[in-house]
Design a protein around this nucleic acid. Structure first.
Lengths: 344, 344
DNA sequence: GTTAGCACTCTATAAGCTTGAGTGCTAATA
DNA sequence: TATTAGCACTCAAGCTTATAGAGTGCTAAC
């Protein structure tokens, strides 16, 4: 099933061309290309072979050819024209990272926005893994006799807060004592282990020092049990509407509903193997994404993978450009995050 | 320009019918309605008058009639069939408010979601006016030698946080002292006045007690200057795609882009006169909303208006149902918020 | 192995025709 | 005078037909 040089050339030109114009390509127009020096009849023969092998398809009996998913897959794996990002794009990225933003979430959010602007596709960023952050400080602020707010600060500067009910007749003065105990014992503990630790170690201490401790322990443990899924950030949600393959309102609806739901996207994003990966069409296992490709890239903080950023476009997307862009972008983002947060 | 009883009846039936089916209505089909007991010829005469007065329009010379914006306006102002929300809807709303949610933002967010599900339109909620919240507590958590996080808690349980740079060679031990001063002097002050107050009153104190105070004061004041616009929450962003008037992909694109941008929506929402208001089509002064109507309703906390919630639908929307729903909803929401936060 | 040539296929577009829902006007009716 | 029946007319939507153009596959010649 080895393809000849000529077949590879034809396949590549067909896909490049289709990515550009979204129109089926015929043998005659192919034969006119500079790179190609054989007659349309020859090309027709080669195309027939390529079709038989499943790399290209016809939209109807007498139409030109269009890449199949298998064709795109081969193209992405073997035929990608190597490409460095455009200078202008690189500068734009640099300028974003040059701004003094501190919150990690804002950086990630902004990343999604910039990438969608640069690519005209939809950008999706999966926020950092908060669960693995380590506790820096817990604070408890009573609002009134019945409610209080627990505030958690992590080593990366992430802040979470949640209201909870105080047990009836709880002495507000005990709160500070309790906060001190918690800070003493829990600082440096990863958020995901907090709940466990509270029940295993802290309960004993609280029993000694705090009256009426039982009601508040469960409330607190519940509050600190940061089981929230990681946040998703989007840029250019509606960019897909400009693509000719989404002129069908039902397709658009399917796609946008799935984006709005977030659940499906989250499932796709969380299985994040390190590096850059391309999922084409049905490889995404999702009917709303049948005509889409998703390119994911991970970014890190120091040695540790912390997040994923992805570009969602039509299967006919500019793989080469997007991949090189993501390459450059995640490298820069990693550098920035490492510098910002690794020095504690 | 007073309309006769019969003209009113005809106008009402036309609009009711069009809201239901999105199809132009002809004299013959009107004459078959139970409410109407005169011939199609008579109706044609009346329709001609109504058209001349600008309440209805034809889509082409021999088509049935369709309500004009003026028609909808008259309908909303004078012809709305009074209607109580459906029992099932009321129960759904009640059940939402019965859940024990504490954070105001979550309540508002959930409100938008529920309303969009109940109406099948897009729901938009403008969050509470944070600026008018009063400071409950400021906390400053140093992350490392160069950065710290300022955390503000307000009387309504709203939490904001922002990272800022510490001036070089700032003594970390001074931070607690500073936080104490700030809390002493600023508790109870509305967020919008914080910055002013810091420069007028606190600077003097800090100068006495804190070394190297000048670098940190501007950083802090900047951080505490909560000038963020109020948050917007959406529900059912893609619901509009199911409306027949949005089968045109360009219209959809305009509308969704404007929603994604948030700016335009924010401008519409922030001019929130108390009570329920209807803006029809071009009354919204926004080309993306030409075929849309926006119904806004305010909700309160005790005596004070705190937020706005709105339903965005096609001009052909079910005004009566939506208005009664919003009426009921905001009353309930107001009760809940008043109960939750007014007891401090 | 490559290519020229030809018959064939299918889409897209435009033009023509028909149907049906609707109108406006006029004259007859209550 | 207000209402209605009747009729000629209009237009959109749907269907059919014709045409042009881009493309294919196959065969035979180079």
């Amino acid at each position: 099933m080895m393809l000849t040089e000529r077949q590879l050339l034809i396949l590549q030109v067909i896909i490049d061309e289709f990515i550009l114009n979204a129109q089926p390509i015929g043998s005659r127009s192919l034969s006119k290309k500079d790179e190609i020096n054989f007659s349309s009849a020859t090309i027709r023969n080669e195309m027939a072979d390529l079709e038989e092998l499943g790399f290209i398809e016809k939209t109807h009996t007498s139409s030109g050819r269009v890449p199949s998913e298998k064709g795109y897959r081969y193209y992405v794996d073997h035929l990608l024209p190597p490409q460095a990002p455009k200078l202008a794009d690189m500068q734009k990225i640099k300028s974003v990272f040059a701004e003094r933003i501190y919150e990690m979430e804002k950086i990630v959010q902004k990343s999604a926005q910039i990438l969608s602007e640069l690519t005209n596709y939809t950008a999706i960023a999966l926020g950092p893994k908060v669960k693995e952050n380590k506790l820096k400080k817990i604070q408890i602020v009573p609002l009134n006799k019945e409610t209080a707010i627990a505030i958690i600060v992590t080593n990366t500067g992430h802040v979470e807060n949640k209201m909870f009910s105080l047990p009836p007749s709880f002495d507000v003065n005990e709160i500070e004592k309790m906060a001190n105990i918690l800070n003493d014992r829990l600082t440096g503990v990863p958020l995901m282990e907090l709940k466990d630790k509270i029940f295993k170690e802290i309960v004993v201490l609280l029993r000694q020092h705090i009256h009426n401790y039982d009601g508040i322990v469960t409330a607190l443990a519940d509050t600190l049990n940061v089981s929230k899924p990681r946040k998703l950030f989007f840029g250019g949600k509606t960019n897909m509407l400009s693509q000719p393959e989404f002129h069908d309102i039902d397709k658009v609806k399917m796609l946008l509903s799935m984006i709005e739901q977030e659940k499906g996207i989250y499932d796709l994003m969380k299985q994040n193997p390190a590096g850059i990966h391309v999922k084409i069409g049905r490889e995404n296992n999702n009917s709303a994404l049948e005509d889409c490709s998703l390119i994911t890239a991970t970014y890190s903080m120091g040695p540790e993978e912390v997040g994923t950023i992805a570009i969602l476009g039509p299967t006919r997307m500019e793989y080469s450009r997007v991949i090189s862009l993501l390459h450059f972008f995640t490298a820069d983002l990693t550098t920035l995050l490492t510098k910002l947060y690794q020095k504690q």
